[in-house]
């Protein structure tokens, strides 16, 4: 159990595992030496020989700037996109409210028109006109004279005069049979 365990390519543990947690009899690997941050750990070759060390070139400066820009852009998009959605939604809602208000106005105007139409219809109906005429003292004409249409240059004939309809309350049938007692019994 003296064979050393291969070094592990991972960050150096802050502390070795407590031996007490291991099973009795199991080989305990020696603790890996602490590594400095940024130091490449060279792989161990099968023959136990380590690869030669080499200098790693630092990351180019412009690439770091580009990466920063990309990150900033992504952040800006991440912030701006939801804000834009919220803004658009707010605008849409405002539009809907405006639309609803206009529809309410339209409905109100239609109702007003309907009410006015009804009012006009009620004022125009015959019973209203008759009642208003009576209030103003109007009475049915006792006779109606028709003026015939006469061509220019032709002497007009005397207009025919027709007795107007009597008020309905005074409609009488009393005279309808006066001329013939025989006919009064016929259908």
């Amino acid at each position: 159990m003296a064979a050393p365990a291969p070094a592990r390519r991972r960050a150096a543990p802050s502390a070795p595992r407590p031996a007490a947690t291991r099973s009795p009899g199991a080989a305990v690997a020696p603790a890996a030496p602490p590594r400095a941050a940024g130091v490449d750990v060279r792989p161990v070759r099968p023959g136990g020989e380590r690869a030669p060390l080499r200098v790693v070139a630092p990351r180019p400066r412009h690439r770091r700037r580009a990466g920063r820009r990309t990150a900033l852009a992504a952040l800006a998009i991440a912030v701006a996109a939801p804000l834009s959605v919220v803004g658009l939604y707010a605008d849409m809602t405002a539009g809907q409210v405006r639309l609803a208000r206009l529809q309410q106005q339209l409905t109100a105007e239609q109702q007003r028109q309907n009410t006015l139409e009804l009012r006009v219809a009620r004022l125009e109906n015959p019973s209203t006109i008759v009642a208003e005429a009576r209030v103003q003292g109007m009475v049915p004409a006792s006779k109606v004279t028709q003026i015939p249409e006469v061509p220019v240059g032709v002497e007009a004939a005397a207009p025919s005069t027709a007795a107007s309809s009597q008020p309905r309350a005074s409609v009488s049938t009393s005279g309808s049979r006066s001329s013939s007692t025989r006919s009064s019994t016929r259908s």
Binding site: S172, T173, S176, R177, S183, S184, T185, S187
Partner: peptide
Amino acid sequence: PIYGGSVSAP
């Protein structure tokens, strides 16, 4: 009265 000439004609 019953006659059409008396009630309906007017």
